[in-house]
């Protein structure tokens, strides 16, 4: 897996043409889209996400790709999910939301014309807010601070020197050693949140300055 990725990056470095649109040092990129929850077998897998990325960087002389350090903040909401608990034929309501605060490196490769490829790698924190309710019992809620690593790939098209539109896919996973997720434990989920990860698919609006 690593080798093809490295070859891809090396290939991109070799074949990247000079950028069609002028470069900028700062980028503010609001985005919105969907988040797919991996790691729970009985719960809602799709949530909505919105957030923004701020990046600062530039290019090296005679080297087409541009390098940006970014900080990203976003909110993913999975809403109230009614889960049927098979072994006791009851319903429970799970609500989860995540705040993602990450930072890392984005490398921008000019592909053709105003089209660019973005590759990202970074890390940060995922603040989770979890609630569980069931008929007759008090609600259980808890917050967690999860350390995550993320990678990403995306395309954007630079309509103007100051504006681009694009799509970005990020995959983030928890690097902490975890025993389990409490709610997943309550529900007796087969995938009990021990290995948590998310896929983020977002539409981006880039403001370059």
């Amino acid at each position: 897996m690593k080798k093809p990725s490295l070859l891809l990056i090396a290939g991109l470095l070799l074949v990247s043409p000079a950028a069609f649109a002028g470069g900028s040092h700062f980028l503010f990129e609001p985005f919105t889209g969907v988040t797919f929850n991996h790691g729970f077998s009985m719960e809602n897998a799709v949530g909505f996400e919105s957030g923004a990325l701020f990046a600062v960087g530039g290019k090296l002389k005679g080297f087409p790709p541009r390098f940006y350090l970014y900080v990203r903040a976003s909110e993913s909401i999975f809403g109230d999910d009614e889960v049927f608990i098979d072994n006791r034929e009851a319903y429970g309501t799970v609500s989860r939301a995540y705040t993602r605060i990450t930072g890392g490196l984005r490398v921008v490769f000019p592909i053709v014309g105003r089209l660019r490829l973005n590759l990202e790698a970074g890390g940060g924190t995922m603040l989770s807010r979890n609630r569980y309710g069931e008929a007759g019992m008090s609600e259980v809620s808890y917050d967690e601070d999860l350390t995550v690593f993320e990678t990403g790939i995306g395309l954007n098209y630079r309509f103007f020197e100051w504006l681009s539109l694009g799509v970005m896919y990020n995959y983030s996973y928890v690097t902490d050693t975890r025993n389990c997720d409490l709610i997943a434990g309550f529900l007796g989920e087969r995938q009990d949140g021990r290995e948590l990860a998310w896929s983020h698919l977002n539409v981006t609006l880039g403001l370059h300055f």
Binding site: R88, C180, D181, L182, G185, F186, L187, G188, E189, R194
Partner: peptide, 8 residues
């Protein structure tokens, strides 16, 4: 170490 509180 299964997290099976709901397993019953």
């Amino acid at each position: 170490a299964d997290c099976g509180g709901g397993g019953g």
